[in-house]
């Protein structure tokens, strides 16, 4: 599991099929942890009626320029999303 104490994180860019609450447009992008939300049932199991698996959920804040690059409408505007810890990787 990824360490959620690190400030800057990258969203994993993997693309497995199925019910996933990590938006595709954020995969592979870097942001900072805005706050820790606590433990929530992993939707990737809950969606199929499987036994509950609690995962840390955090809010990650991205700069628009880090999501859209040069196409960003206003580079310093931000986007926050809730991401489960198993989708985070440390940025070294």
């Amino acid at each position: 599991m990824a360490d959620t104490n690190v400030e800057t994180v990258r969203i994993k860019s993997m693309m497995p099929p199925g019910h996933i609450r990590t938006p595709a447009y954020l995969r592979g992008k870097c942001g900072v942890i805005e706050r820790n939300l606590g433990e929530f049932a992993n939707p990737e199991r809950a969606a199929y009626g499987l036994k509950k698996d609690m995962q840390t959920l955090v809010r990650v804040r991205f700069l628009m320029k880090d999501i859209w690059g040069d196409a960003a409408e206003n580079p310093e505007d931000t986007l926050d999303a809730e991401i489960y810890a198993h989708w985070l990787e440390k940025v070294s």
């Binding site: 609450r21 990590t22 938006p23 939300l37 929530f40 939707p43 959920l57 809010r59 206003n74 310093e76 505007d77 931000t78 986007l79 926050d80 999303a81 809730e82 991401i83 489960y84």
Partner: peptide, 15 residues
């Protein structure tokens, strides 16, 4: 205004 920071919040999970 240009100087205003816009923050978009995507309700992706439990909040």
């Amino acid at each position: 205004p240009k100087g205003t920071t816009l923050r978009i919040h995507d309700s992706t999970a439990d909040m």
